[in-house]
């Protein structure tokens, strides 16, 4: 479910910016780090961290849009790639300098232990992740599909020029999309940070999985990315339960290479939005 949040933010940023945001994984890590700092130094309980992380990382996403994405709007996508890779490195090394390279544990959301539900023992943390993740995905869906702001964000993603021609301040909406993506990444970082700890070097791995999910789910497709992210999560869980983590990751990467060799245009081809 946390993968789904990462992939969701990744695809939102991708659609708005028109280019891959390589710093997305490091925003996830940054979210975890904020949770660690706020949880330990301020002693905030897990649930109270949610808004703190969301607001901080939303601001980080906004800054990312302002410094690395909007100024490069007129340049080829490779320029944005490099700028966001640099941004990713800034976050990673900034965290290393600030917090050290050793992994840290983020506070859990609602304490540890498990609940008895219908005879099944469920961990409280996984359950909380599931609930928070589900709520956020639903909220984003509602925003995009049922509100004026969401419609306009989609219009900007679809055709930036035309969106301006109907009066939408496109730059502001792109920054907004990136802020939303950042908030989702940060919350994912908070959710993952308890079980898998937070280390500055994890960013590339998070980004790669979101990238894979978007490529498998159909470039730019929000539901496709969500489904693919959940699929990757299940796949990893099962393969690593049987064969170990390394084999699970290896199988995933080989699978992606094979997939791209067979279908260079992605699973569903490019969505219609890119034809316009």
């Amino acid at each position: 479910m946390a993968y789904a949040l990462i992939a969701l933010g990744f695809v939102l940023a991708l659609n708005a910016a028109g280019a891959v945001n390589f710093a997305h994984g490091d925003l996830v890590v940054l979210g975890g780090a904020v949770a660690v700092v706020a949880g330990v130094s301020l002693g905030l309980p897990g649930l109270a961290l949610l808004p703190v992380v969301a607001v901080t990382l939303g601001a980080a996403g906004f800054v990312a849009a302002r410094v690395a994405i909007l100024p490069l709007a007129g340049r080829p996508p490779e320029a944005t790639f490099v700028a966001t890779i640099a941004l990713a490195a800034i976050v990673e090394h900034g965290l290393t300098v600030g917090l050290g390279a050793a992994p840290l544990a983020a506070p859990s959301l609602v304490g540890s232990g498990s609940l008895e539900v219908g005879g099944l023992a469920l961990g409280r943390q996984p359950l909380a992740i599931l609930l928070v993740g589900g709520a956020l995905v639903t909220a984003v869906w509602f925003l995009l599909e049922r509100t004026q702001t969401g419609r306009r964000m989609r219009a900007v993603s679809s055709d930036r020029y035309m969106a301006r021609a109907i009066g939408i301040p496109a730059a502001r909406y792109i920054a907004l999309s990136l802020a939303l993506a950042g908030a989702l990444a940060g919350i994912a970082g908070l959710l993952l940070g308890h079980q898998f700890l937070v280390a500055p070097t994890q960013g590339a791995g998070h980004m790669l999985k979101a990238y894979i999910a978007v490529a498998l789910g159909g470039w730019g497709s929000v539901p496709g990315a969500l489904l693919a992210a959940l699929g990757i999560g299940f796949f990893e869980t099962f393969v690593s339960a049987g064969l170990g983590d390394a084999w699970a990751s290896a199988a995933l990467y080989v699978g992606v290479l094979a997939f791209l060799a067979v279908r260079p245009q992605g699973l569903f081809g490019e969505p219609a939005g890119r034809r316009a």
């Binding site: 419609r151 989609r154 679809s158 055709d159 969106a163 969505p271």
Partner: peptide, 11 residues
């Protein structure tokens, strides 16, 4: 109303 219509494909 631009040349080529430019409708928002996914909306």
């Amino acid at each position: 109303v631009p040349a080529g219509r430019r409708v928002f494909a996914g909306l």
